[in-house]
Nucleic acid binder design. Sequence first.
DNA 1: TCTGGGGTCCTAGGACCC
DNA 2: TCTGGGGTCCTAGGACCC
Length: 423
Amino acid sequence: MKDAVSMNSHYPKNGRVILHVDMNSFYASVEMAYDPGLKGKPLAIAGNPKERKGIIVTCSYEARSFGVKTTMPLWEAKKLCPNLIIKPPNFDRYRAASKGMFAILRQYSDLVEPVSIDEGYLDITDSFEIGTPLEIASSIQNQIKSQLDLPCSIGIAPNKFLAKTASDMKKPMGITILRKRDIPAKLWPLPVIEMHGVGLKTAEKLNSLGIKTCKELAQANDIQIKSVLGINGLRLKERANGTDRRIVDPDSIYDYKSVGNSTTLPKDTTNQNELLSTIDRLCAKVSERLNQKDVVGTTVQIMIRDKFRKTITRSRKIENPVMKREDLFLYSKDLFIKNWNGDPVRLLGVTVQDLIEKNEATEQLDLFSYESTAKQEPLFNVLSKLHEKFGKGSITKGIRGKEKGTACDSNQDTSFNKDFLRD
DNA sequence: TCTGGGGTCCTAGGACCC
DNA sequence: TCTGGGGTCCTAGGACCC
């Protein structure tokens, strides 16, 4: 506890205190919580190999000690660990556990940002009356363990990047503090590939510049890394120096950017009927999820992967927002027929992008139906009616939507709207 | 019988407009 | 007569993460 107190005093007056909570081998741990008989055994969650989905999604630490890793094909995992216990994923369970976990986090701060099903950030800068950061972290960890029987690791730091990095440092059931002044000792010795945001490709590019460690990245030449990695290179350099201004945003999960489903076919096929009926099923799933989230979208994208894993995407922006299965299928089918080269297909996907909330879309539709009757009327009449109905802000918003072709015929003349906007 | 499925963000070229 | 520069939108692909 002494450590926590002294740490507290080292945060600058206006500095933040961010926690990153990361559940340890989440799916496997949830299965163990449901069936304690699995505890202490090598356990893996994996799909059905008969459907060619037999890759390791998550595995217990016991399985990891045999060398079993995420995304490893099942047969390979079994070769490494013949006694491996395999369970199919049970997403309802994982969602329920996730809900419980976030409910606990929200007891400590309103500023909780879920990042994925099993990890999230908390801004506890203003939670000091509950305790020191270390006390809060350890209370959260205990509560998740005692109430849900699930292990987690927690990072404590002045920003998201460092908190995320810290939570990775001690697993399972670790709590790690990463202050700015710890960076040279704790972050800089790591190879760049260990950094969140640096994958294989980026690591290769950095290595080719002679940058192997986080320290070398932190001290890299701006012009050089920008020329090779663009703006992302500069951002990575900032992070390596411990700078990250991103806020903890509890609402970020509500701004969906896309909703999609994809599936690997049991066998590669050229049977068009089969492919189209798969696309139809994917459209049904996507449509259902759009409905649940109360959103519609204006871009439909399909994905086709062949046996060499070569993947293409084809998309189309449409005028009227879609969400219905049938509409979605018409667009997807069209994209498929026009772009499929006839080769055997391994995977198909359907995604809807450029999402808008359903009520917002209806608002825009209303506005445009109003407008189309108004088309023949003098301009000042139209504008005053729109003013009456929505106020100036809404007109602007509606017209912006229109410029994107959201809900109107793209052949319509939109010039008077644009001129109106140009004050 | 090697490599799932859900996402986000960024880049880059071409079309089009002023 | 022969061609600038800024900006946005659309589309495709790539990198990365869990």
